[in-house]
């Protein structure tokens, strides 16, 4: 069984590039040495996190919502753009989105796996896995060829938190694996931040609890940059965009949680045709996204008085000061 799994999911090319870095090796992450119970050595595909740069772990639910996905992606993108390394676990949902955002933002990103580094798990993340080997690294304490065993996954969380300077929890249910990472981070003396959600939202309970317990409230990536001591120059580049009247009305009903065409028809009082015109118009302008058939969410473009601005406009200076 184990052999079969390996044959299916590993490529000889990748197993060639795997390094084993022991604790006594100079390249072994210094950050891990100060804690107990850290692995004797790490298998690395790609490179290890740069010691001179700050790193942030972004973790969260696997069954994440559209809101969580978008937040994870845009935060990671913004942080990566400011030179921060993003560390996560390459799981479905928030983890994957964080890696994706970091890659989009042009930064380095590292995944700590619970299986061998030559195994892409989940296999649906093959694309980011390959990209990360080039622009960051895949780390694991498990030897190459180790299949994904459920028991190994919580253990890798201590490495994720250990490698980072700050842990951000994006979406978590009341009892979630991401909270283990947050607890470990607190034990290790790291800052923990959580993204707030709506009260009563199943996916936000864990995060709200964290905030209640004193975690930082991450309402913008700038808060995290500040906590890391990275100075940034805010020069929000605004793009003028003209919304037609109907578009404006329809847009005002769209949130980060998906809204259906039917609901919009009911709320705006327009006919389905008018709403659809407005929606397609907004989509073409890049203000909203159709995440599933006729289910719409806002993109990370912010519109205020007909002006659109995005996180994209933020530039950072003096990395890692």
């Amino acid at each position: 069984m184990e052999e079969l799994y390996n044959r299916r999911n590993t490529t000889s090319k990748q197993s060639d590039g795997i390094q084993y870095i022991q604790q006594n090796h100079a390249a072994y992450p210094q950050k891990l040495l100060c804690y107990k119970g850290m692995p004797k050595g790490l298998y690395v595909l790609g490179k290890l996190p740069d010691k001179t740069r700050k790193s942030v772990a972004i973790v969260g639910a696997r069954r994440s919502s559209a809101y969580g996905n978008q937040i994870a992606k845009s935060f990671a993108k913004e942080l990566a753009g400011a030179g921060v390394q993003i560390i996560s676990g390459m799981a479905w949902g928030i983890d994957g989105k964080a890696h994706e955002g970091a890659l989009e933002g042009g930064g380095d990103t590292y995944a700590v796996l619970g299986c061998g580094v030559d195994i892409c798990y989940p296999s649906g993340h093959r694309k980011i896995y390959e990209a990360m080997i080039q622009r960051g690294g895949i780390l694991s304490e498990q030897p190459p060829g180790m299949p994904p065993i459920a028991g190994h996954f919580p253990a890798r969380n201590r490495i994720i938190s250990g490698l980072s300077d700050l842990v951000l929890v994006v979406e978590a249910k009341e009892r979630s694996g991401s909270l283990i990472t947050a607890d470990l981070a607190l034990e290790q003396g790291k800052d923990v931040f959580a993204v707030p959600g709506r009260i009563g939202d199943e996916m936000s309970k864990g995060c709200l609890n964290l905030i209640k317990q004193g975690a930082g409230l991450a309402d913008s990536p700038l808060v995290l940059l500040e906590a890391l001591g990275i100075k940034r120059n805010v020069s929000e580049k605004s793009v003028k965009i003209v919304l037609e009247k109907n578009e404006d009305i329809v847009y005002s009903w769209i949130r980060l949680q998906p809204v259906s065409l039917e609901e919009l028809v009911k709320k705006t009082g327009f006919g389905s045709r008018e709403v659809l015109f407005a929606l397609v118009g907004l989509e073409l302008k890049g203000c909203i996204r159709e995440m599933q058939k006729n289910q719409y969410v806002r993109t990370d473009l912010r519109i205020t008085n007909g002006e659109i601005s995005g996180y994209r406009g933020v530039t950072s200076k003096g990395e890692n000061n």
């Binding site: 069954r63 919502s65 479905w92 949902g93 994957g96 996916m203 998906p258 995440m291």
Partner: peptide, 21 residues
């Protein structure tokens, strides 16, 4: 939209992204 039928409503849908796909 998915096996349980509630995606993208995460309050009720219990499918992993991979399962939806």
């Amino acid at each position: 939209p998915c096996r349980c039928g509630f995606y993208p409503d995460r309050q009720r849908c219990s499918c992993l992204p991979g399962e939806v796909r």
